[in-house]
Computed example of a mutant assay.
Amino acid sequence: MMFGRAEGGRKRGRPVMKLIDSIKEDGKPSVCKAGLGFASMVIVFFCNTYYIMVLAWGFYYLVKSFTATLPWATCGNPWNSPECVEIFRHEDCANGTGTSNLTCNELSDKRSPVIEFWENEVLRLSKGLDFPGAINWEVTLCLLACWILVYFCVWKGVKSTGKALASWLPLPPCSLSPVPEVARDLERGRERKSKLRA
Rank of each mutant, 00 (worst) to 15 (best):
C142R: 00
T69C: 02
Y151L: 11
N48M: 13
V139E: 00
S126G: 10
V182T: 12
G128R: 05
A183R: 08
A73P: 02
K195L: 05
F66Y: 07
G133S: 06
P178G: 02
L165R: 07
E86G: 03
S167A: 14
I148V: 13
Y61A: 07
D130P: 00
I148E: 06
V85C: 01
L143H: 09
D185Y: 13
L144Y: 14
F59R: 08
G9H: 11
R188V: 07
P173F: 05
E181V: 13
K110H: 05
V122D: 02
L171Y: 14
P180S: 10
R197W: 04
P173S: 11
C174Y: 15
D26G: 06
T69F: 00
A56M: 01
K110R: 09
K156M: 05
V31I: 08
E121K: 05
P71A: 06
V63E: 09
I148Y: 09
S167I: 07
L149V: 11
I115H: 14
P78M: 01
T67I: 08
E91H: 08
W79M: 09
W155C: 12
F152H: 15
F88N: 03
L19V: 07
T49E: 15
L129F: 12
S175P: 01
A166H: 03
P170S: 15
R89E: 04
V44L: 14
G58A: 07
R188G: 03
T103K: 07
W147M: 15
N105F: 06
Y60P: 01
L62G: 02
G37F: 14
G8F: 11
T103Y: 03
W147R: 01
T161R: 04
F66P: 06
F46M: 15
Y151G: 04
S126E: 09
P173H: 12
R124I: 09
W72Y: 09
R5E: 12
R184L: 01
W155V: 12
L107C: 02
F117W: 02
I43W: 15
V182C: 08
